[in-house]
Design a binder for these strands. Sequence first.
DNA 1: CTTGACCTTACCATGGTGGTAAGGTTCATG
DNA 2: CATGAACCTTACCACCATGGTAAGGTCAAG
Lengths: 147, 147
Amino acid sequence: MPSLQQSNTGDSLSPHSYRIGEAAELSGVSAKMIRHYESLRLIPKASRTSSDYRVYSDKDVHALKFIRRARDLGFSIKEIAMLLGLWRNQRRASAEVKQMALQHVAELDEKIEQMKSIRATLAELASHCHGDHRPECPILDDLSEQH
Amino acid sequence: MPSLQQSNTGDSLSPHSYRIGEAAELSGVSAKMIRHYESLRLIPKASRTSSDYRVYSDKDVHALKFIRRARDLGFSIKEIAMLLGLWRNQRRASAEVKQMALQHVAELDEKIEQMKSIRATLAELASHCHGDHRPECPILDDLSEQH
DNA sequence: CTTGACCTTACCATGGTGGTAAGGTTCATG
DNA sequence: CATGAACCTTACCACCATGGTAAGGTCAAG
């Protein structure tokens, strides 16, 4: 009975309250990870009902979506902590954000190049492998050679 | 003093014995990881000196190099376990190996595409960000939008 | 005999996520 | 009002691959 249900009267007039499961569904971040992010102090401690259930506002859900999106874009938790700081900060300087994004792009480029190179090596090895019942296999031969 | 040093008489006539540090240096796999691989049964338990030091042969070092190379090519421990099995197996069938390699190539392709897409999104966002002292920042705006 | 470089085991950390167990709460239905 | 389903709570353990540290044993050279 305490406070939570704000009467589902159909109107979605601003700040609803959500329990963790609803917040998870709305934000796309699992309940598990919401608690985890709280423990990492990525998001503030949620307020609680009298029975200790976590309560989230629309604003909280919004922040969770922000995090979700940033994770999808490959930002680490630490980077997201910084982005959230800049986001919440009124006098946020776009320079910092841009710099982070560009650095991230550079890191991605490096990883992509690495993976492409590995991919090419593997594909090359596979192309020389008969792939039948015969024991000869250039892939294993390559692996067992001295590099 | 027991048994290990096989007299460094310059000749590299076959199976030398190595302690874990040497095996690590020769194979490119850290001592830490050699022990780890042993605990995972990826490699057989090393024989020991009377003072419990692990002892490795040239053949062992060769296997470690195999593992190292396979890791460099992005194979997981489980995959490497399979590859090692096929490698050590006389009647190794190249079909299995080729199939693993090609599947790995396909997974790499998928990951590369994902990363490229993320990279493009980020670069696009960054290109619209002034990157100066102004607070406007399309990157943060995108992150905080509903997706 | 001491010193330093090596080895041993056993533990903890990372990052991001999933699972499970054991218990409390809320609500609808019988 | 009692029961059960669906939710919530905390506290653990797991992955994968790797690095670190601590506390101790061993060995060769000085």
